[in-house]
Write a protein that binds this DNA or RNA. Structure first.
Length: 226
DNA sequence: GGCCAGGACACCA
DNA sequence: TGGTGTCATGGC
């Protein structure tokens, strides 16, 4: 293992430890089943989670939160329930495409779909229109418990401010940074991503509260560039 | 009233 | 490969 490799691992773990000790475990994903995770992953695309919660509550109230129920629900009806989550027409289509794929290829059983090597599942998820890298990886990690790191806008913002990646680093580059330097551990990836989202939401938004950010310094005493 | 949110995709150069 | 527009609601 090279000096550079050990250095990056140390800094990544230092950020993780700082966030965890300041914020505590995040208990992600906030859902009651793997299928609910997958639905939430699609609905939260570029959308505040509070809005997704309303849409999921609508689906539950209407007893639509299952592959079979969603399959027999007209697109317009589904879209109406999804309205609070924004992009509701797009997301209704994407959910329909997803459960259609699930029904045809896996008998409507998400667990069966996920119970294969993660690289296989990932390629299949990415082949479904409306499921990009972050959505696929969220499903793999939080619904399938696979050791796949989820990268999002907060991950890029925080990591580039800490000079661990270039601001324009690709999704795959950021993901490789974590997966090549950290143990292949679903529990660690789960908590790490959730903590980055918490830090991003609370300390990196339009009125940054960088002075209060638990990652203001990592364990090496390095300061982020804001 | 403007900006932003736990993206994906089509289109273009 | 990289930049831009589109999709839309709700909180601050």
């Amino acid at each position: 293992m090279s000096r550079r490799h050990r250095g990056l691992r140390h800094r990544l773990l230092a950020l993780y430890d700082a966030a965890l000790s300041a914020l505590g475990p995040q208990h992600w994903w906030p859902a009651q089943s793997p299928f609910e995770v997958a639905v939430g992953a699609i609905l939260t695309q570029n959308t505040a989670w509070t809005n997704v919660e309303r849409a999921i509550a609508n689906l539950k109230r209407a007893r639509l939160l299952s592959p079979r129920a969603l399959a027999r629900t007209p697109l317009r009806t589904l879209a109406r329930h999804l309205r609070p989550s924004g992009y509701f027409r797009v997301k209704a289509r994407r959910l329909k495409v997803f459960i259609g794929h699930l029904a045809r290829r896996h008998g409507g059983n998400l667990e069966r779909m996920l119970a294969r090597p993660p690289a296989t599942v990932r390629a299949e998820l990415l082949s479904i229109p409306g499921i990009g890298a972050e959505t696929a990886d969220s499903i793999l990690l939080y619904a399938g418990d696979h050791p796949i790191f989820v990268v999002d806008a907060y991950t890029r913002r925080i990591l580039s401010r800490h000079r661990l990646v270039f601001p324009r680093g690709s999704y795959d580059e950021l993901q490789r940074l974590f997966m090549a330097h950290l143990p292949s551990d679903p529990a660690l990836y789960n908590e790490y991503h959730a903590l980055l989202v918490h830090v991003g939401k609370e300390f990196c938004r339009s009125h940054p509260r960088c002075d209060a950010c638990p990652l203001k310094f990592d364990l090496d005493g390095r300061r982020p560039r804001v």
